[in-house]
Each structure stands twice: as structure tokens, then as C-alpha cells.
Design a binder for these strands. Structure first.
Lengths: 254, 254
DNA sequence: CGCGAGCTTGAGGCGATTCAACTGTCGTGG
DNA sequence: CCACGACAGTTGAATCGCCTCAAGCTCGCG
């Protein structure tokens, strides 16, 4: 349960959101201002906290301003599968509403700062048909965002269904690098990844032990370097080849 | 490439579409009529044919009136992963548009009959924001349909990432049974499944051989019966337990 | 009749898991 | 200040689930 906070370095924190949405479709200056206004009403969550009040309020797009989170599901015997890893700029609980028992919960992986858009009223008002009024003015962006996310889910299915641990891991690192670059949180060669090997395992459908060994192999073959939470991609082209990675295409042409 | 056909038992074939959409949200008589009108302009495709012209026309919802298909992706070395199995009443190529290189192609698995809704004009006109005019009048239904499909994708991710071959197979059979019942093509105990074990394998992320042995195990334990393309669920409760299956919830309350 | 597609079966091997222990690094409190 | 526990990462050994390869089988169909 996030606790309400306030103020702080409000404007600075919204950079990831505006960078991401702008990449999907150019933002007007007015829209950028509206995003910066998100910094007014923040909420914070500690690692492990459940975000997204599970079938709670209808259709309240919530953005992650800082920190990492994930969408996941737990099986009755304790197994966990992570659907997607959420980084700053990502929206949480966007589509999970009409049927709340989609039973995907969102959980903070690090300390997280959130900003929730004003509730859009009734669920009906939030459906695409009635969104012409578009109280928040970002319907197109949210639509594109949803499409991008669906693409990531499909990538994930390929990883889990048809790729080896080695390929999966390489693929994930490339995906994270691309997404972090989009929001200005990666440099050409590497990035910071505040994830434990347990989280990687539950995302990649592997055991912790095997994630460990697979990362070792990637390091041994000098494809990556890791120390602490820093990741360096030493040979991105080869990783791309191994993982058959294809970055999403963002053509905002009409 | 589907070939255009015409007329035939037009009205009768649209039953699956209207049953499915009606389950998502009750249809008005006028809407039912509009769906029956889909029977006017049909297209047929042979097994193996590519549906959905890959980045082709923008946003033309196409419905499967009869036959089965799938969405899939091929890896460069020939491995295949199937994302979803499409049955009558399902829409194809609904979201795959703004970024065409989502690189999920749709392929017919049996003989398939399709009906394409009138193109909605420019891609922009098809985005949710501008859909207030909603030329076809089913925006809410398509939205709910997309949410249902996302839930199925998440189920699939859990299957591939954290379930055994045995659990995956049971889960798939229950999902198909539920979806076929929704469109009136399953009875209480069983249904017809025109899928080869190769298709099942590429969907479940397994080898053909292992799908075969897993189905044998389910039969040996008298949980299912299979002969030809007929499937009978002998002990649905136990299968549900094994697979941790939870059918989607369709609460069309506001 | 012969062919091909789909299904079935066996044997062997590899990838990934499980269990278990050990290391290193923190933050905390006696 | 150091002992302590908690947690993340690492390593080894044994096992198992699933894969690959390779045959043989059973249909339906030209």
C-alpha cells in the first residue's frame, strides 16, 4: 500500500514519463507541462509493497517516476512468474481493470515513487469509446504505450517458450538496455539494474542457481560485465545475434 | 492471402462472433443485426495461409467466422512459438497495427472463413481517442475483447514459465473448453480440437514427442479421452486443480 | 498400391532443477 | 567494537524433465 507523500523534487522526477511518451508520439509543450504537474501529488512505496489496489479504483493510470517494479502472479504452491519489469516512465494498472481477476498484481522491487492520474470517473468513461472527451489528453499515447507493452509480452512468450536460458538472459539484458535508453537512464554500453537473481529467475522462468550460472557464462565469454547492480554490455552485436533480439519499432508516422 | 468469396450461409456463420461479444457485454438487437451483416462479405483461407496482411491496412478488425488459426512468430533457425490459438468469434489483427513490426503473424490452422470490418479510414481515426464517432459501434466490446486476450497472454506466460508439461497441457485443454463453450461449440464434457500435436507443441513450448507422451499420461490417468480431434474431459475438477486453472471473469456490471 | 502426414515408441543425452553448503556483505544491537 | 543474523551470490553433486535422434506405425488419399 503506497503512502502519500508530497512536493519534493517534483518536476525533475517526471523526466522518464515525458521522455517515454514523447518517444511514442511527440508531446506538445502543453502536454509536457501537464506531465510535469504529476510531480505535485506523489506516492511512495517500499520494496515488496503491492501497488495497484487489486481490482480497486477503476482505470487510474499510475506512472512510475522512480524505482523499479513488476507485474506478477503467484501460484498456489508458491511458484512465481513475473510478466513484466516496470521501470520509471512505465504505467501500471492500465488495462487490468474491467476484469479485475486478471489476477496480475504489481509489486515494488525497489523503493518506488508513483504519480496517479486523476481518476477518470466510471469505468465506462474510461473505455476507448467515451474517451473522446479524453479528460487527461493522452489517449493516443496510452494506446501506443499499450501496443508497445503487448509487443514486450509477446517477446517474453518467445523467450519462455522457445529460447534457452542463455538466449533468454541475453534477450532480457538487451530489452532493458533499450528501454532504459529510451528514458535516458542508460549509456551506450551499460546501465544499472537493481534486480536480484531471484527476480531474474522468476521473470525468465528459471531457477536462481541457473540464472547465476548463465550470467557467469556470459561474463566468462566476455559478452557482459557485472558488478553490483551495474551491467555493461561488452559485445551488444553478438548478444543481439544470440538472442535474436529486435528492438521495438517506434514509427510515429501517420 | 485470403481469397474473396461471397454470400453462402452468411447469417448462420456469424453466431460465434455475436455469442462471444454478447458474453463480454450484452449486445443490442441493432448490434446483432450489424454482426449478421458481416456474413455478406466473406473471405476464405486454406490451412497454412497467412491472414492479416503484415503491416498492411491500418486497423481493420477481422473476425474468424469458422475454422481455427493462430498468432505466431518464427525464429531465424526455424523454431516457432505460437502466442495464441484463434477460434471462431475471435478477432485477428486488432492491436498489431501502429507498430507493424510487432512481428506476430497470423496463420490459418484449418480452413478458415473471415469477415473484415470496413476499414476505419486513417490510422489516426482508429485510435481510441478519435473513436468516439465509433463508425462501427463496437468500441466497448473490442476494448473488453482486448482485455480478455491480454489475460489469456498472461496465462500463457505462466504456463510457459512456471508450469510443467503436464500442467500446461491440462491448462490449455481447460482454456479451450471454456472459450469454445462461450461460443456454443463445446458441450459440458468435451469439444472438437482440430490441432496437430505439432501445433500443440509450438504453443506449449514443448517438443512434439513430449506432447504426445503428456497426452498419453493424461489419458492413462483417465483425466481425458481423445480420439481423432475429439477431446473429452473426464475429470474437469481434477484437471482444474492440476493446472491451477481459473476461467476469466466476465462481469459486465458497471 | 504407394506415398506422406501425423502419431507412437525406445534409447540416450543434455539442460535445468533441487538440495545443500559455503562465502561475502551488509546493518543491527549487545 | 565485534558478534550476529539476514540476505544475495556462488559452488558442487545428484537427479529429473524434457529433448534429440531414429524407427516404426497407422491412417487417408491420389
Amino acid at each position: 500500500m503506497p503512502t502519500r507523500t508530497s512536493g519534493a523534487s517534483a518536476v525533475a522526477m517526471t523526466g522518464a514519463v515525458s521522455r517515454r511518451l514523447n518517444a511514442l508520439k511527440p508531446l506538445s509543450p502543453a502536454q509536457v507541462q501537464r506531465i510535469e504537474a504529476l510531480g505535485e501529488r506523489l506516492e511512495a512505496a517500499a520494496p515488496g509493497a503491492m501497488l495497484q489496489t487489486e481490482g480497486g479504483g477503476p482505470m487510474r493510470p499510475t506512472f512510475i517516476l522512480s524505482g523499479w517494479a513488476c507485474r506478477q502472479r503467484l501460484l498456489p504452491d508458491g511458484r512465481r512468474q513475473i510478466f513484466s519489469i516496470l521501470i520509471p516512465g512505465d504505467a501500471v494498472g492500465f488495462c487490468a481493470d474491467p476484469s479485475p481477476i486478471s489476477s496480475a498484481s504489481a509489486v515494488a522491487l525497489t523503493k518506488v515513487t508513483l504519480a496517479t492520474v486523476e481518476p477518470l470517473g466510471s469505468p465506462a468513461a474510461a473505455s476507448p469509446s467515451n474517451r473522446a472527451q479524453d479528460p487527461w489528453g493522452f489517449a493516443d499515447h496510452m494506446w501506443l504505450s499499450a501496443c508497445l507493452e503487448e509487443g514486450l509480452l509477446l517477446d517474453h512468450i518467445v523467450r519462455l517458450g522457445r529460447q534457452t536460458a542463455y538466449e533468454r538472459t541475453a534477450h532480457l539484458l538487451l530489452e532493458l538496455h533499450w528501454r532504459l535508453a529510451l528514458i535516458g537512464q542508460a549509456d551506450q554500453r551499460g546501465f544499472t539494474m537493481p534486480l536480484t537473481q531471484e527476480v531474474l529467475a522468476d521473470f525468465l522462468g528459471l531457477s536462481i542457481v541457473h540464472v547465476n550460472r548463465t550470467l557467469q557464462q556470459l561474463r566468462r565469454e566476455r559478452l557482459i560485465e557485472m558488478s553490483g547492480s551495474k551491467v555493461v554490455l561488452l559485445d551488444a552485436p553478438q548478444l543481439t545475434e544470440i538472442a535474436d533480439y529486435q528492438p521495438p519499432t517506434l514509427e510515429h508516422g501517420a
